[in-house]
Structure formats: structure tokens, C-alpha cells
């Protein structure tokens, strides 16, 4: 196995992991504030993709712009749709259950996840009359990949890594440096005392949902650009992987989410890539990538249950 091939796998893994990480942040922030596995977060991610696609397909002229000029508009559309959906879900579905037993909001989340998928599958329409029952084409970068000594870096890959880096830097700044960010951390650590400081916990919970949704929308855009298509059910597996990433990194820890995403992405690409490379194990490659990812999750849970960056927390169930 040549170094180039290995490096190519690392490149793929990093990009994939960056995307997982972006989604994982949403899981980890919501879990950190209200200890809820927001099962519908995968669908928020999916809605972000369709929001971006809507801007591209439905707003006259956007499709004729060069893609890099259309991207900010699409991103805006995706973020708006995802944030609106997440905040609406929090307000209508989760908030009334704040004091209910913890299974109740989780089941609500599962219901929400199924309903959102179906809404898109049943009623999303493209200008030509096409629907979203099957995967829908998403604009992608033309042009050749950058060749770094044999390692190919697709333009979408570059965009993904840059977007993830910018988002994480922005998020780190927001959490550590702004008044709202500190208030959010305070709410996560001790909601009652946060109230004594004059912080409205409901508002901070909304902020957590909104920030997570915005990052998921960015991730959806990168997913669409990389694969050239999006689909109504792409949130399930992506969400599952991202939640795995969040647990790997230590749930509740924002930096851990990104680290977990990258570790998961690398593990997935390297394990399946390396297996696929050798003739004896070739058949255990790509088709088994998801299996290796979950095996990794179970291993990490066995060896380091609090996750890579997590602190040991007592069961609050």
C-alpha cells in the first residue's frame, strides 16, 4: 500500500469527519443543555440541505451565478430553514415536555424525525415538477481536483474543511468570548444558578438548538456539494454517525464533537480503505464501512466511556 493511497484515505477521512463533526455539534450542545438526544437533528441537517437547494432551484438567477457566488445565498437559505425548524421543534414539541419523564421527549423526537422526512418526501417540489421521493441533484463544483503530489483534493473537500474550520472557530469564539456563550455554558452546568444570574434558560436552550441547526445546515451544504445529491432520508445515517461522533468525543463537549467526528471519519475511511486495498480482505471494504464505525463506537465506550474529551459525569437519568 503506497503512502499516496494512505494519504488519500486520510484526506477523505478528514473531510468526512469534518462533516460529521459539524452535525455532531448540534447533538452535543442540545444534550449538554437539556440531556436530550435530539433524534430529529439528522432531519434538521436534511432540511438544511433542502433549504439550500430551494434557494438554488427556486430563486430566479441563482442557478446562473457562478457556484461560489451562489453558495452564500444557498447557505443562508439552508441555515434559515434549519434554524426555523429546530427552534419550532423546540418550542412546540420539546419545551412542553421539559418536566416529563425522559423517554417522552425522546419518543417525540423520533416522531418528529419520521414526520419531517415524510413532509419532504411527500410535498417537496422542484421547479420542473420533480419531487424528492428519490435523491435530488444538488449543484456541485465543476473543474478538476487539486493534485497535491498524487493526493486528490476535490474542490468540495476544500470547501468542507474551510467551512468546518471557520464554523468551529466562530463557535469557540461564541462560547468562550461572548456574553450569550458564557450564559449558555452556565445553563448547561447549573440551570438553577444560571437563573439566579438573570439568565433565561429557555432562551439559552433555543440558542443551543439554533446554533446546532445552523452548523448542521453548513454540513448539509458540504454533503450536497460533495456527492452532488441530497435525499429526504439522508438525515438518518448521517445523524446516527454524528451522534456516534458526539459520544466518541465526549457528549456535551463542543470541541469533543469535532474531534469525535474527525476520528470517526478517519476510522471509517481508513478501515474500509485499507481492507478494500488488499485482495484477501477486499470484500470487507466499502460495504462494511458503517459496521466498522459502530464497532469503533462500542470499543471506545468500553475503554473510555466518557468519550475522548469528556469528563466523567454521573448518570442524571
Amino acid at each position: 500500500m503506497s503512502v499516496t493511497v494512505l494519504l488519500q484515505l486520510v484526506e477523505n477521512g478528514l473531510v468526512l469527519g469534518a462533516m460529521y463533526g459539524l452535525i455532531a455539534v448540534g447533538y452535543t450542545m442540545v444534550y449538554g443543555t437539556i440531556q436530550l438526544i435530539n433524534f430529529a437533528h439528522g432531519e434538521i441537517f436534511m432540511l438544511g440541505g433542502f433549504g439550500a437547494l430551494t434557494v438554488y432551484a427556486w430563486i430566479p438567477g441563482v442557478a446562473h451565478l457562478p457556484l461560489f457566488a451562489a453558495l452564500p445565498l444557498m447557505l443562508l437559505g439552508g441555515v434559515v430553514v434549519a434554524v426555523a425548524a429546530a427552534v419550532g421543534a423546540e418550542r412546540l414539541a420539546y419545551r412542553p415536555l421539559r418536566t416529563a419523564p425522559r423517554l417522552a421527549p425522546l419518543i417525540t423526537a423520533i416522531g418528529l424525525s419520521l414526520a419531517l422526512q415524510q413532509v419532504v418526501s411527500l410535498w417537496y417540489r422542484l421547479p420542473g415538477g420533480g419531487n424528492a421521493k428519490a435523491p435530488v441533484a444538488f449543484p456541485s463544483f465543476g473543474g478538476k481536483a487539486f493534485d497535491l503530489g498524487g493526493v486528490l483534493v476535490q474542490r468540495a473537500d476544500l470547501f468542507t474543511v474551510i467551512a468546518a474550520a471557520v464554523c468551529m472557530a466562530g463557535l469557540a469564539w461564541f462560547v468562550a468570548r461572548t456574553r450569550s456563550g458564557r450564559a449558555m455554558q452556565a445553563t448547561a452546568q447549573d440551570p438553577d444558578t444560571a437563573r439566579l444570574m438573570g439568565i433565561d434558560p429557555d432562551r439559552m436552550i433555543v440558542v443551543a438548538f439554533a446554533v446546532g441547526a445552523a452548523l448542521a445546515a453548513v454540513a448539509a451544504l458540504t454533503q450536497g456539494l460533495r456527492y452532488g445529491q441530497i435525499s429526504f432520508d439522508m438525515g438518518f445515517v448521517a445523524g446516527l454517525k454524528a451522534f456516534t461522533a458526539a459520544v466518541l468525543g465526549g457528549i456535551g463537549n463542543v470541541r469533543g464533537a469535532m474531534l469525535g467526528g474527525i476520528v470517526l471519519g478517519l476510522a471509517e475511511e481508513l478501515s474500509s480503505g485499507i481492507l478494500a486495498h488488499f485482495r484477501d480482505t477486499a470484500q470487507y471494504g466499502q460495504a462494511w464501512a458503517d459496521v466498522w464505525a459502530f464497532v469503533l463506537l462500542i470499543l471506545v465506550l468500553l475503554l473510555r466511556p466518557q468519550g475522548l474529551l469528556g469528563e466523567r459525569v454521573a448518570d442524571r437519568a
Binding site: R182, Q185, A186, Q189, D190, T193
Partner: peptide
């Protein structure tokens, strides 16, 4: 100023 201090330990 609540009972048992309740500072934010991870800040």
C-alpha cells in the same frame, strides 16, 4: 448567593 455555593466549576 445559593446554598452550597453553586459556582460554575468548569468556568
Amino acid at each position: 448567593c445559593p446554598e452550597a455555593r453553586r459556582i460554575f466549576p468548569r468556568m
